[in-house]
Write a protein that binds this DNA or RNA. Sequence first.
DNA 1: AACATGACGTTGC
DNA 2: CGCAACGCCATGT
Length: 113
Amino acid sequence: MVYRIVRRVPRGTVVTYGQVAAILGHPRAARAVGQALRMLPPGLQRIVPWQRVINAAGRISHRGDVLRPDRQRALLEAEGVRFSRSGTVDLRRLRWRGPRREWIVKLRHEPPF
DNA sequence: AACATGACGTTGC
DNA sequence: CGCAACGCCATGT
């Protein structure tokens, strides 16, 4: 479900881990969303826009990884996402509001990618 | 089965 | 703004 949802996040916008969790019906599973993305097979990184998922503070999470954050920021900037001097994204402007409610149920019987 | 460990979030200083 | 304490969920050992 994580992949199904993240796949639909439009270019140039972002979502938070908790937001993805909420969309898929587990509002407190933000951490698990991170797990899912961590296990994203490299071959699917072109299909699932993992770089558009950031934390609720508007920052890129760097926990347990050193190289990924820089790459993630570069990818986002390449699609027009601007970062503040302190390295935050303006969530109020760039947050994707999510799919329509009816859409979510449909996602369930669609292929994950 | 128990325990540690994260791509986390909220709350309360 | 920052920081710590908890709570949460899935994995790996």
